[in-house]
Design a protein around this nucleic acid. Structure first.
Lengths: 250, 250
DNA sequence: CCTTAATATTGATTTTAATCAAAACCGGAT
DNA sequence: ATCCGGTTTTGATTAAAATCAATATTAAGG
Protein backbone atom coordinates (compact mmCIF):
# COMPACT_ATOMS: atom_id res chain seq x y z
CA UNK A 1 0.00 0.00 0.00
CA UNK A 2 1.00 3.55 -0.57
CA UNK A 3 2.73 4.97 2.47
CA UNK A 4 1.36 8.12 4.00
CA UNK A 5 4.23 10.13 2.69
CA UNK A 6 3.10 9.69 -0.88
CA UNK A 7 -0.52 10.45 -0.45
CA UNK A 8 -1.42 13.77 -2.03
CA UNK A 9 -3.68 14.53 0.89
CA UNK A 10 -0.69 14.60 3.19
CA UNK A 11 1.41 16.83 1.06
CA UNK A 12 1.70 20.55 0.86
CA UNK A 13 2.84 22.02 -2.36
CA UNK A 14 4.75 24.67 -0.51
CA UNK A 15 7.16 22.01 0.56
CA UNK A 16 8.06 21.58 -3.01
CA UNK A 17 11.35 23.08 -3.92
CA UNK A 18 11.79 24.54 -0.47
CA UNK A 19 14.31 23.36 2.01
CA UNK A 20 13.09 22.73 5.50
CA UNK A 21 10.65 25.56 5.19
CA UNK A 22 8.38 24.31 7.89
CA UNK A 23 10.87 22.84 10.28
CA UNK A 24 11.25 24.92 13.43
CA UNK A 25 14.36 25.01 15.53
CA UNK A 26 12.53 23.17 18.27
CA UNK A 27 11.25 20.51 15.85
CA UNK A 28 14.74 20.20 14.55
CA UNK A 29 16.57 19.86 17.82
CA UNK A 30 14.28 17.96 20.10
CA UNK A 31 14.50 14.68 18.18
CA UNK A 32 18.28 14.88 18.25
CA UNK A 33 18.13 14.43 21.95
CA UNK A 34 18.45 18.08 22.91
CA UNK A 35 16.13 18.75 25.81
CA UNK A 36 13.97 21.84 26.12
CA UNK A 37 16.65 23.55 28.12
CA UNK A 38 19.28 22.91 25.50
CA UNK A 39 16.99 24.14 22.75
CA UNK A 40 16.44 27.29 24.79
CA UNK A 41 20.19 27.65 25.03
CA UNK A 42 20.45 27.33 21.28
CA UNK A 43 17.65 29.81 20.74
CA UNK A 44 18.43 32.37 23.38
CA UNK A 45 22.10 32.39 24.11
CA UNK A 46 24.08 31.25 21.13
CA UNK A 47 22.09 33.09 18.58
CA UNK A 48 22.98 36.41 16.94
CA UNK A 49 20.02 38.55 15.97
CA UNK A 50 20.15 39.99 12.51
CA UNK A 51 17.97 42.40 10.60
CA UNK A 52 17.47 42.23 6.86
CA UNK A 53 15.76 44.91 4.86
CA UNK A 54 13.18 44.21 2.21
CA UNK A 55 15.09 43.00 -0.83
CA UNK A 56 18.20 42.22 1.19
CA UNK A 57 19.97 38.88 1.11
CA UNK A 58 20.27 36.52 4.04
CA UNK A 59 22.60 34.29 2.11
CA UNK A 60 23.73 33.94 -1.49
CA UNK A 61 24.10 30.97 -3.77
CA UNK A 62 27.56 29.54 -3.69
CA UNK A 63 28.65 31.17 -0.47
CA UNK A 64 30.00 29.09 2.37
CA UNK A 65 27.63 27.58 4.87
CA UNK A 66 28.26 29.53 8.04
CA UNK A 67 25.03 29.46 9.94
CA UNK A 68 21.48 28.25 10.23
CA UNK A 69 18.79 30.89 10.50
CA UNK A 70 15.52 30.89 12.39
CA UNK A 71 13.14 33.50 11.03
CA UNK A 72 11.87 35.63 13.92
CA UNK A 73 9.72 38.05 11.97
CA UNK A 74 9.08 38.95 8.36
CA UNK A 75 8.95 36.86 5.26
CA UNK A 76 11.64 35.54 2.93
CA UNK A 77 11.90 33.67 -0.31
CA UNK A 78 14.62 31.35 -1.53
CA UNK A 79 15.48 31.27 -5.19
CA UNK A 80 18.05 30.11 -7.70
CA UNK A 81 19.30 32.10 -10.63
CA UNK A 82 19.21 30.31 -13.95
CA UNK A 83 21.87 30.83 -16.55
CA UNK A 84 19.75 33.22 -18.56
CA UNK A 85 19.36 35.46 -15.54
CA UNK A 86 15.79 34.60 -14.70
CA UNK A 87 15.27 33.62 -11.13
CA UNK A 88 13.25 30.66 -10.01
CA UNK A 89 11.60 30.82 -6.61
CA UNK A 90 12.20 27.66 -4.62
CA UNK A 91 10.41 28.44 -1.40
CA UNK A 92 8.82 30.91 1.00
CA UNK A 93 9.78 31.19 4.63
CA UNK A 94 7.79 32.80 7.40
CA UNK A 95 8.40 33.59 11.06
CA UNK A 96 9.15 30.51 13.10
CA UNK A 97 10.73 28.64 10.24
CA UNK A 98 14.27 27.56 9.66
CA UNK A 99 16.59 28.50 6.81
CA UNK A 100 20.03 27.48 5.69
CA UNK A 101 19.82 23.70 5.75
CA UNK A 102 20.09 23.75 1.97
CA UNK A 103 23.85 24.01 2.49
CA UNK A 104 24.19 21.09 4.85
CA UNK A 105 25.30 18.49 2.34
CA UNK A 106 27.71 20.60 0.33
CA UNK A 107 28.78 23.30 2.78
CA UNK A 108 27.70 25.80 0.14
CA UNK A 109 24.38 27.51 -0.15
CA UNK A 110 22.47 26.25 -3.14
CA UNK A 111 20.08 29.18 -3.30
CA UNK A 112 19.68 32.85 -2.48
CA UNK A 113 17.54 33.84 0.48
CA UNK A 114 15.88 37.22 -0.03
CA UNK A 115 13.67 39.18 2.36
CA UNK A 116 10.24 39.97 0.93
CA UNK A 117 9.75 42.47 3.73
CA UNK A 118 11.91 43.80 6.55
CA UNK A 119 12.73 40.71 8.56
CA UNK A 120 14.55 39.58 11.66
CA UNK A 121 16.39 36.32 11.89
CA UNK A 122 18.35 34.53 14.56
CA UNK A 123 21.64 33.34 13.28
CA UNK A 124 23.02 30.11 14.69
CA UNK A 125 26.67 30.15 13.62
CA UNK A 126 28.10 26.96 12.30
CA UNK A 127 30.92 27.16 14.84
CA UNK A 128 28.32 27.01 17.61
CA UNK A 129 26.68 24.05 15.94
CA UNK A 130 30.06 22.36 15.98
CA UNK A 131 30.40 23.08 19.69
CA UNK A 132 27.09 21.41 20.29
CA UNK A 133 28.15 18.56 18.06
CA UNK A 134 30.93 17.84 20.47
CA UNK A 135 28.45 17.40 23.32
CA UNK A 136 25.84 15.79 21.10
CA UNK A 137 27.78 13.90 18.44
CA UNK A 138 24.71 12.88 16.51
CA UNK A 139 23.68 16.47 15.80
CA UNK A 140 25.13 16.90 12.33
CA UNK A 141 24.17 13.38 11.39
CA UNK A 142 20.69 14.20 12.50
CA UNK A 143 20.64 17.37 10.44
CA UNK A 144 21.52 15.32 7.41
CA UNK A 145 18.77 12.90 8.20
CA UNK A 146 16.24 15.71 8.60
CA UNK A 147 17.45 17.24 5.40
CA UNK A 148 17.12 13.99 3.48
CA UNK A 149 13.68 13.43 4.89
CA UNK A 150 12.48 16.93 4.04
CA UNK A 151 13.91 16.82 0.64
CA UNK A 152 12.68 13.33 -0.17
CA UNK A 153 9.31 14.67 0.85
CA UNK A 154 9.66 17.61 -1.52
CA UNK A 155 10.75 15.23 -4.16
CA UNK A 156 7.63 13.15 -3.88
CA UNK A 157 5.59 16.28 -3.99
CA UNK A 158 7.11 17.54 -7.17
CA UNK A 159 6.05 14.33 -8.79
CA UNK A 160 2.49 15.25 -7.93
CA UNK A 161 2.90 18.86 -8.97
CA UNK A 162 3.95 17.65 -12.39
CA UNK A 163 0.49 16.31 -13.08
CA UNK A 164 -1.46 19.17 -11.53
CA UNK A 165 -3.33 21.86 -13.37
CA UNK A 166 -2.88 25.55 -12.63
CA UNK A 167 -5.89 25.85 -10.35
CA UNK A 168 -4.91 22.74 -8.43
CA UNK A 169 -1.40 24.01 -7.93
CA UNK A 170 -2.68 27.27 -6.56
CA UNK A 171 -5.09 25.43 -4.26
CA UNK A 172 -2.22 23.36 -2.89
CA UNK A 173 -0.15 26.46 -2.41
CA UNK A 174 -2.90 28.30 -0.55
CA UNK A 175 -3.60 25.30 1.65
CA UNK A 176 0.04 25.09 2.55
CA UNK A 177 0.19 28.77 3.41
CA UNK A 178 -2.98 28.38 5.43
CA UNK A 179 -1.58 25.50 7.41
CA UNK A 180 1.67 27.27 8.08
CA UNK A 181 -0.05 30.45 9.21
CA UNK A 182 -2.22 28.32 11.50
CA UNK A 183 0.82 26.64 13.04
CA UNK A 184 2.34 30.03 13.80
CA UNK A 185 -0.83 31.18 15.51
CA UNK A 186 -2.38 33.28 12.75
CA UNK A 187 -5.72 32.83 11.10
CA UNK A 188 -5.99 29.78 8.93
CA UNK A 189 -8.52 31.34 6.60
CA UNK A 190 -7.56 34.97 6.46
CA UNK A 191 -4.07 36.12 5.65
CA UNK A 192 -1.88 38.39 3.59
CA UNK A 193 0.49 36.88 1.08
CA UNK A 194 3.74 38.78 0.88
CA UNK A 195 4.88 37.59 -2.52
CA UNK A 196 3.81 38.80 -5.96
CA UNK A 197 1.83 36.80 -8.49
CA UNK A 198 5.01 36.45 -10.43
CA UNK A 199 6.81 34.88 -7.48
CA UNK A 200 3.94 32.49 -6.87
CA UNK A 201 4.04 31.61 -10.54
CA UNK A 202 7.74 31.00 -10.53
CA UNK A 203 7.33 28.80 -7.51
CA UNK A 204 4.48 26.78 -9.01
CA UNK A 205 5.83 26.66 -12.54
CA UNK A 206 3.20 28.98 -13.99
CA UNK A 207 3.13 32.42 -15.56
CA UNK A 208 1.84 35.31 -13.50
CA UNK A 209 -1.24 35.74 -15.69
CA UNK A 210 -2.14 32.11 -15.16
CA UNK A 211 -1.80 32.55 -11.41
CA UNK A 212 -4.01 35.60 -11.53
CA UNK A 213 -6.64 33.75 -13.55
CA UNK A 214 -6.52 30.83 -11.13
CA UNK A 215 -7.13 33.25 -8.25
CA UNK A 216 -10.07 34.75 -10.12
CA UNK A 217 -11.48 31.32 -10.88
CA UNK A 218 -11.34 30.23 -7.25
CA UNK A 219 -13.05 33.47 -6.32
CA UNK A 220 -15.74 32.97 -8.96
CA UNK A 221 -16.43 29.57 -7.46
CA UNK A 222 -16.79 31.26 -4.06
CA UNK A 223 -14.00 29.14 -2.61
CA UNK A 224 -11.84 32.12 -1.70
CA UNK A 225 -12.12 35.89 -1.63
CA UNK A 226 -9.08 37.68 -2.99
CA UNK A 227 -8.18 41.28 -2.76
CA UNK A 228 -4.75 41.75 -4.15
CA UNK A 229 -2.41 40.14 -1.60
CA UNK A 230 -5.16 39.52 0.92
CA UNK A 231 -6.77 36.10 0.80
CA UNK A 232 -9.78 34.82 2.70
CA UNK A 233 -10.58 31.16 2.42
CA UNK A 234 -14.35 30.83 2.32
CA UNK A 235 -14.59 27.09 1.94
CA UNK A 236 -11.61 25.12 3.15
CA UNK A 237 -13.16 21.77 2.28
CA UNK A 238 -13.81 22.68 -1.32
CA UNK A 239 -10.32 24.12 -1.59
CA UNK A 240 -8.93 20.79 -0.42
CA UNK A 241 -11.09 19.00 -2.95
CA UNK A 242 -9.70 21.22 -5.70
CA UNK A 243 -6.26 20.05 -4.80
CA UNK A 244 -7.14 16.40 -4.45
CA UNK A 245 -8.95 16.18 -7.78
CA UNK A 246 -5.89 16.25 -9.92
CA UNK A 247 -4.24 13.01 -8.97
CA UNK A 248 -7.61 11.30 -9.08
CA UNK A 249 -8.47 12.60 -12.52
CA UNK A 250 -7.38 10.94 -15.73
CA UNK B 1 27.34 33.54 -9.75
CA UNK B 2 25.40 30.45 -10.51
CA UNK B 3 27.15 27.41 -9.11
CA UNK B 4 27.89 24.52 -11.42
CA UNK B 5 25.21 22.40 -9.84
CA UNK B 6 22.47 24.63 -11.13
CA UNK B 7 23.63 24.94 -14.65
CA UNK B 8 21.41 23.04 -17.05
CA UNK B 9 24.46 21.97 -19.00
CA UNK B 10 25.66 20.00 -16.02
CA UNK B 11 22.42 18.25 -15.36
CA UNK B 12 20.95 15.08 -16.70
CA UNK B 13 17.25 14.85 -16.67
CA UNK B 14 17.47 11.19 -15.78
CA UNK B 15 18.62 12.20 -12.36
CA UNK B 16 15.27 13.73 -11.85
CA UNK B 17 13.05 11.77 -9.56
CA UNK B 18 15.55 8.96 -9.30
CA UNK B 19 17.44 8.09 -6.20
CA UNK B 20 21.14 7.65 -6.62
CA UNK B 21 20.61 6.14 -10.02
CA UNK B 22 24.10 6.80 -11.19
CA UNK B 23 26.02 6.32 -8.01
CA UNK B 24 28.12 3.19 -8.12
CA UNK B 25 29.14 1.23 -5.07
CA UNK B 26 32.71 2.26 -5.60
CA UNK B 27 31.81 5.92 -6.00
CA UNK B 28 29.76 5.61 -2.90
CA UNK B 29 32.26 3.91 -0.66
CA UNK B 30 35.60 5.32 -1.65
CA UNK B 31 34.93 8.82 -0.35
CA UNK B 32 33.90 7.38 3.01
CA UNK B 33 37.42 6.25 3.50
CA UNK B 34 36.96 2.67 2.39
CA UNK B 35 40.00 1.65 0.40
CA UNK B 36 39.85 -0.38 -2.80
CA UNK B 37 40.33 -3.55 -0.81
CA UNK B 38 37.46 -2.78 1.50
CA UNK B 39 35.20 -1.97 -1.39
CA UNK B 40 36.12 -5.31 -2.92
CA UNK B 41 35.19 -6.92 0.37
CA UNK B 42 31.86 -5.16 0.25
CA UNK B 43 31.28 -6.17 -3.32
CA UNK B 44 32.63 -9.69 -3.30
CA UNK B 45 32.27 -11.18 0.12
CA UNK B 46 29.41 -9.61 1.96
CA UNK B 47 27.06 -9.56 -0.91
CA UNK B 48 24.24 -11.98 -1.69
CA UNK B 49 23.47 -12.48 -5.35
CA UNK B 50 19.82 -12.28 -6.28
CA UNK B 51 17.90 -12.84 -9.47
CA UNK B 52 14.73 -11.00 -10.31
CA UNK B 53 12.49 -11.89 -13.19
CA UNK B 54 11.02 -9.37 -15.56
CA UNK B 55 8.17 -7.69 -13.74
CA UNK B 56 9.42 -8.86 -10.34
CA UNK B 57 9.98 -6.55 -7.41
CA UNK B 58 13.34 -5.85 -5.84
CA UNK B 59 11.72 -3.89 -3.06
CA UNK B 60 8.28 -2.48 -2.36
CA UNK B 61 7.15 0.89 -1.11
CA UNK B 62 6.72 0.96 2.63
CA UNK B 63 8.79 -2.11 3.37
CA UNK B 64 11.66 -1.94 5.79
CA UNK B 65 15.08 -0.93 4.56
CA UNK B 66 17.11 -4.11 4.74
CA UNK B 67 19.73 -3.82 2.06
CA UNK B 68 21.38 -1.77 -0.62
CA UNK B 69 21.46 -3.26 -4.10
CA UNK B 70 24.05 -2.99 -6.83
CA UNK B 71 22.61 -3.92 -10.23
CA UNK B 72 24.85 -6.55 -11.87
CA UNK B 73 22.85 -7.08 -15.03
CA UNK B 74 19.48 -6.15 -16.41
CA UNK B 75 17.41 -3.04 -16.09
CA UNK B 76 15.03 -1.80 -13.42
CA UNK B 77 12.68 1.06 -12.82
CA UNK B 78 11.62 2.67 -9.57
CA UNK B 79 8.12 4.00 -9.20
CA UNK B 80 5.56 5.20 -6.72
CA UNK B 81 1.91 4.29 -6.76
CA UNK B 82 -0.47 7.21 -6.53
CA UNK B 83 -3.71 6.98 -4.65
CA UNK B 84 -5.74 6.44 -7.77
CA UNK B 85 -3.66 3.42 -8.63
CA UNK B 86 -1.64 4.91 -11.44
CA UNK B 87 2.04 4.49 -11.06
CA UNK B 88 4.59 7.21 -11.57
CA UNK B 89 8.04 6.21 -12.71
CA UNK B 90 10.74 7.87 -10.65
CA UNK B 91 13.87 6.43 -12.19
CA UNK B 92 15.61 3.85 -14.34
CA UNK B 93 18.54 1.80 -13.15
CA UNK B 94 21.04 -0.10 -15.25
CA UNK B 95 23.90 -2.48 -14.54
CA UNK B 96 26.56 -0.94 -12.36
CA UNK B 97 24.19 1.35 -10.54
CA UNK B 98 23.06 1.37 -6.97
CA UNK B 99 19.55 1.01 -5.59
CA UNK B 100 17.94 1.26 -2.20
CA UNK B 101 19.32 4.51 -0.84
CA UNK B 102 15.83 5.95 -1.10
CA UNK B 103 15.17 4.31 2.27
CA UNK B 104 18.16 5.71 4.06
CA UNK B 105 16.48 8.60 5.81
CA UNK B 106 13.31 6.87 6.88
CA UNK B 107 14.31 3.20 7.06
CA UNK B 108 11.41 2.53 4.74
CA UNK B 109 11.48 2.24 1.01
CA UNK B 110 9.75 5.18 -0.59
CA UNK B 111 9.26 3.52 -3.96
CA UNK B 112 8.88 0.18 -5.70
CA UNK B 113 11.79 -1.20 -7.67
CA UNK B 114 10.64 -3.33 -10.59
CA UNK B 115 12.73 -5.31 -13.08
CA UNK B 116 12.10 -4.28 -16.70
CA UNK B 117 13.91 -7.44 -17.80
CA UNK B 118 15.42 -10.43 -16.03
CA UNK B 119 18.04 -8.89 -13.79
CA UNK B 120 20.72 -9.82 -11.30
CA UNK B 121 21.53 -7.70 -8.29
CA UNK B 122 24.01 -7.93 -5.46
CA UNK B 123 22.36 -7.41 -2.14
CA UNK B 124 24.34 -5.70 0.60
CA UNK B 125 22.36 -6.47 3.74
CA UNK B 126 21.84 -3.66 6.17
CA UNK B 127 23.30 -5.80 8.96
CA UNK B 128 26.55 -5.97 7.05
CA UNK B 129 26.47 -2.24 6.53
CA UNK B 130 26.11 -1.89 10.27
CA UNK B 131 29.12 -4.14 10.79
CA UNK B 132 31.14 -1.87 8.56
CA UNK B 133 29.74 1.14 10.37
CA UNK B 134 31.38 -0.12 13.52
CA UNK B 135 34.77 -0.12 11.83
CA UNK B 136 34.04 3.00 9.83
CA UNK B 137 31.72 5.07 11.99
CA UNK B 138 31.21 7.72 9.36
CA UNK B 139 29.66 5.28 6.89
CA UNK B 140 25.99 5.90 7.56
CA UNK B 141 26.60 9.59 7.99
CA UNK B 142 28.27 9.55 4.65
CA UNK B 143 25.38 7.72 3.07
CA UNK B 144 23.10 10.45 4.32
CA UNK B 145 25.37 13.05 2.89
CA UNK B 146 25.49 11.30 -0.48
CA UNK B 147 21.76 10.94 -0.41
CA UNK B 148 21.20 14.62 0.37
CA UNK B 149 23.62 15.60 -2.34
CA UNK B 150 22.03 13.38 -4.97
CA UNK B 151 18.59 14.43 -4.08
CA UNK B 152 19.37 18.13 -3.88
CA UNK B 153 20.76 17.67 -7.35
CA UNK B 154 17.56 16.04 -8.53
CA UNK B 155 15.70 18.81 -6.88
CA UNK B 156 17.50 21.47 -8.85
CA UNK B 157 16.91 19.50 -11.97
CA UNK B 158 13.21 19.25 -11.50
CA UNK B 159 13.13 23.00 -11.41
CA UNK B 160 14.57 22.96 -14.88
CA UNK B 161 12.31 20.20 -16.10
CA UNK B 162 9.35 22.29 -15.10
CA UNK B 163 10.13 24.81 -17.80
CA UNK B 164 11.09 22.35 -20.53
CA UNK B 165 9.02 21.41 -23.53
CA UNK B 166 8.33 17.83 -24.51
CA UNK B 167 11.09 17.58 -27.08
CA UNK B 168 13.61 19.10 -24.73
CA UNK B 169 12.68 16.70 -21.98
CA UNK B 170 13.15 13.75 -24.27
CA UNK B 171 16.49 15.11 -25.45
CA UNK B 172 17.66 15.40 -21.84
CA UNK B 173 16.48 11.90 -21.15
CA UNK B 174 18.27 10.45 -24.14
CA UNK B 175 21.47 12.30 -23.31
CA UNK B 176 21.37 10.95 -19.81
CA UNK B 177 20.84 7.41 -21.03
CA UNK B 178 23.65 7.91 -23.51
CA UNK B 179 26.04 9.09 -20.84
CA UNK B 180 25.16 6.27 -18.50
CA UNK B 181 25.57 3.64 -21.19
CA UNK B 182 28.93 5.17 -22.03
CA UNK B 183 30.07 4.99 -18.40
CA UNK B 184 29.19 1.32 -18.30
CA UNK B 185 31.18 0.63 -21.43
CA UNK B 186 28.42 0.49 -24.01
CA UNK B 187 27.99 2.62 -27.09
CA UNK B 188 27.14 6.19 -26.39
CA UNK B 189 25.21 6.66 -29.60
CA UNK B 190 23.58 3.32 -30.19
CA UNK B 191 21.51 1.57 -27.57
CA UNK B 192 18.29 -0.19 -26.75
CA UNK B 193 15.91 1.37 -24.30
CA UNK B 194 14.20 -1.18 -22.13
CA UNK B 195 11.26 0.89 -21.05
CA UNK B 196 8.03 1.64 -22.90
CA UNK B 197 6.96 5.04 -24.21
CA UNK B 198 4.45 5.13 -21.41
CA UNK B 199 7.18 4.65 -18.81
CA UNK B 200 9.31 7.34 -20.37
CA UNK B 201 6.27 9.58 -20.39
CA UNK B 202 5.49 8.90 -16.77
CA UNK B 203 9.07 9.66 -15.90
CA UNK B 204 9.17 12.90 -17.85
CA UNK B 205 5.68 14.05 -16.99
CA UNK B 206 4.29 13.54 -20.49
CA UNK B 207 1.71 11.31 -22.13
CA UNK B 208 2.94 8.40 -24.20
CA UNK B 209 1.64 9.93 -27.43
CA UNK B 210 3.59 13.09 -26.74
CA UNK B 211 6.72 11.03 -26.16
CA UNK B 212 6.17 9.19 -29.41
CA UNK B 213 5.71 12.44 -31.29
CA UNK B 214 8.85 13.88 -29.74
CA UNK B 215 10.78 10.80 -30.91
CA UNK B 216 9.39 11.26 -34.41
CA UNK B 217 10.25 14.93 -34.41
CA UNK B 218 13.88 14.29 -33.40
CA UNK B 219 14.07 11.69 -36.13
CA UNK B 220 12.58 14.07 -38.70
CA UNK B 221 15.27 16.57 -37.77
CA UNK B 222 17.87 13.84 -38.38
CA UNK B 223 19.13 14.14 -34.82
CA UNK B 224 18.35 10.54 -33.93
CA UNK B 225 17.22 7.38 -35.69
CA UNK B 226 14.56 5.47 -33.81
CA UNK B 227 13.28 2.02 -34.38
CA UNK B 228 10.95 1.14 -31.62
CA UNK B 229 13.16 0.65 -28.55
CA UNK B 230 16.39 1.00 -30.48
CA UNK B 231 17.91 4.47 -30.61
CA UNK B 232 20.85 5.72 -32.60
CA UNK B 233 22.06 9.21 -31.90
CA UNK B 234 23.11 10.74 -35.20
CA UNK B 235 24.10 14.15 -33.96
CA UNK B 236 25.06 14.37 -30.33
CA UNK B 237 25.84 18.07 -30.50
CA UNK B 238 22.47 19.02 -31.88
CA UNK B 239 20.79 16.80 -29.32
CA UNK B 240 22.59 18.69 -26.59
CA UNK B 241 21.52 21.96 -28.14
CA UNK B 242 17.91 20.79 -28.09
CA UNK B 243 18.18 20.33 -24.39
CA UNK B 244 19.98 23.55 -23.67
CA UNK B 245 17.55 25.71 -25.59
CA UNK B 246 14.77 25.56 -23.09
CA UNK B 247 16.28 27.34 -20.16
CA UNK B 248 17.72 29.95 -22.48
CA UNK B 249 14.45 30.55 -24.27
CA UNK B 250 11.73 32.91 -23.05
C1' DC C 1 4.40 -20.42 -38.60
C1' DC C 2 0.23 -17.90 -37.01
C1' DT C 3 -2.44 -15.63 -33.34
C1' DT C 4 -3.00 -12.38 -29.97
C1' DA C 5 -2.08 -8.83 -26.72
C1' DA C 6 0.80 -5.18 -25.86
C1' DT C 7 3.09 -1.37 -27.69
C1' DA C 8 3.86 2.39 -30.95
C1' DT C 9 2.66 5.68 -34.40
C1' DT C 10 -0.11 9.07 -36.49
C1' DG C 11 -4.15 12.10 -37.16
C1' DA C 12 -8.01 15.11 -35.57
C1' DT C 13 -9.83 17.64 -31.87
C1' DT C 14 -10.03 19.78 -27.44
C1' DT C 15 -8.07 21.61 -23.39
C1' DT C 16 -4.69 24.15 -21.07
C1' DA C 17 -1.43 27.50 -20.38
C1' DA C 18 1.76 30.86 -22.60
C1' DT C 19 2.01 34.98 -24.93
C1' DC C 20 0.75 39.55 -26.34
C1' DA C 21 -1.72 43.58 -25.13
C1' DA C 22 -4.36 46.89 -22.67
C1' DA C 23 -6.50 48.69 -18.81
C1' DA C 24 -7.17 49.00 -13.75
C1' DC C 25 -5.28 49.15 -9.36
C1' DC C 26 -2.26 49.98 -5.47
C1' DG C 27 1.37 51.91 -2.56
C1' DG C 28 4.94 54.91 -1.77
C1' DA C 29 7.16 59.42 -2.70
C1' DT C 30 6.55 64.05 -3.36
C1' DA D 1 -3.89 64.79 -2.72
C1' DT D 2 -1.38 63.48 -7.01
C1' DC D 3 1.94 61.22 -9.68
C1' DC D 4 4.44 57.24 -10.87
C1' DG D 5 6.22 52.62 -11.19
C1' DG D 6 5.19 48.27 -10.24
C1' DT D 7 1.56 44.96 -9.84
C1' DT D 8 -2.75 42.83 -11.01
C1' DT D 9 -6.55 41.77 -13.79
C1' DT D 10 -8.74 40.68 -17.95
C1' DG D 11 -9.17 39.84 -22.94
C1' DA D 12 -7.64 37.95 -27.46
C1' DT D 13 -4.61 35.02 -29.71
C1' DT D 14 -1.26 31.44 -30.20
C1' DA D 15 1.28 27.37 -28.95
C1' DA D 16 1.71 23.09 -26.58
C1' DA D 17 0.19 18.99 -24.88
C1' DA D 18 -3.78 16.02 -23.58
C1' DT D 19 -7.32 13.43 -25.26
C1' DC D 20 -9.82 10.58 -28.44
C1' DA D 21 -9.46 7.42 -32.11
C1' DA D 22 -7.72 4.50 -35.59
C1' DT D 23 -4.10 1.91 -37.52
C1' DA D 24 0.44 -0.30 -37.59
C1' DT D 25 4.01 -2.78 -35.50
C1' DT D 26 6.22 -5.84 -32.35
C1' DA D 27 6.98 -9.58 -29.10
C1' DA D 28 5.45 -13.76 -26.87
C1' DG D 29 3.17 -18.03 -26.84
C1' DG D 30 0.89 -21.78 -28.92
Amino acid sequence: MLPERFSAKNFDVAHIRSSCATCSLRELCLPVGLNEEEVETLGEVIVNKKKIQRGGYLHRTGTKFQALYAVKSGFLKTCVLEEDGRQQVTGFHMAGELLGLDAISTDMHTCDAVALEDSEVCEIPFSKLEDISRTIPSLMHHFHKIMSREIVRDHGLMLLLGSMKAEERLASFLLNMSRRFAIRGYSETDFNLRMTREEIGSYLGLKLETVSRAFSKLQEDAIIAVNNKHVKILNLERLKLKMGNSSCAT
